Simulated scan of single mutants.
Amino acid sequence: MSIRAINWARKTCSAFGVPAQHRLALFALCFFHNDKTGECFPSYDSIATDIGYGRRKTIDLVRDLEANGLVMIQTRRAGGHQGSNQYVLFGKPIGRKWADRVNDTTPCEGAPVCTLPRVPPSAHDRNFSRIEEKAPARIAKSAGSGSYA
């Protein structure tokens, strides 16, 4: 695991508005990165297991990271067969590919007019310490008798 790679990913993702699922894939790659040697060659299955997506979705996420310039993928051959890819981190982002997906406004400002009003934290049903004291009479009576009414 490379702390330098994780710090780079944090700064890059926040600066360029990388979506959450792509961040997961990038952080998984950072976890497999060896800072001393620069090697990073997890299989798609290893990345998919770490981030909780399927293999196909993981391939798409990693290719999106490559298309945006965050990682570079180098294919590795082992005995004439395709091995796991070598990933080169610390790329400079090409541009704001995901800018159209990121909404800079807060959810409250962009919410439609017909939304329900927010419940204040001091509402009577939010005080969980007094729930037993305010139990309806029907429930309080049935609790003592051992049956539910």
Rank of each mutant, 00 (worst) to 15 (best):
R10E: 12
R63W: 02
V62W: 09
G83M: 12
V62S: 06
F16G: 02
C114E: 03
D45I: 14
S84F: 11
A48W: 02
Q86C: 05
E109F: 08
S46N: 11
K134M: 10
R130D: 06
T75L: 06
T115C: 14
V62T: 09
A9R: 04
G69W: 04
A15S: 15
M1H: 15
E66N: 12
A149S: 12
N34Q: 10
G91H: 03
R77G: 14
A78D: 03
D45P: 01
T105D: 09
P117R: 10
T49A: 14
Q74V: 10
G80R: 15
H81N: 06
T115F: 09
N127S: 08
P107S: 01
P112Q: 06
G38E: 13
L116W: 15
R55L: 07
A20Q: 03
P117S: 11
C108H: 15
G83W: 13
I94A: 07
P112L: 08
P42A: 01
Q86T: 05
A15L: 14
S142W: 02
K97G: 13
N34V: 03
R138V: 07
Y44N: 12
R130S: 08
A143S: 14
K57P: 00
T106H: 14
D100K: 13
Y148V: 14
R126C: 08
P121T: 02
F41Y: 07
A25S: 06
N127M: 02
I6W: 14
G91L: 01
G91Q: 07
A99M: 04
E133V: 13
N7A: 09
T105Q: 13
G83Y: 11
S142R: 14
G144H: 11
R96G: 13
C40H: 05
H81Y: 14
S129A: 14
T115R: 14
M1N: 11
R76G: 02
C30P: 09
A123Q: 04
A140Q: 12
T12F: 10
G52F: 15
E66Y: 00
L70R: 05
G69V: 10
V119G: 10
A28M: 07
F128N: 11
G54F: 10
Q82C: 13
F90Y: 15
N103T: 03
A67C: 13
F31Q: 09
A67F: 05
P136N: 01
G144Y: 03
G54W: 12
K97V: 10
G17K: 07
V88F: 10
P121L: 10
N85M: 09
R118D: 03
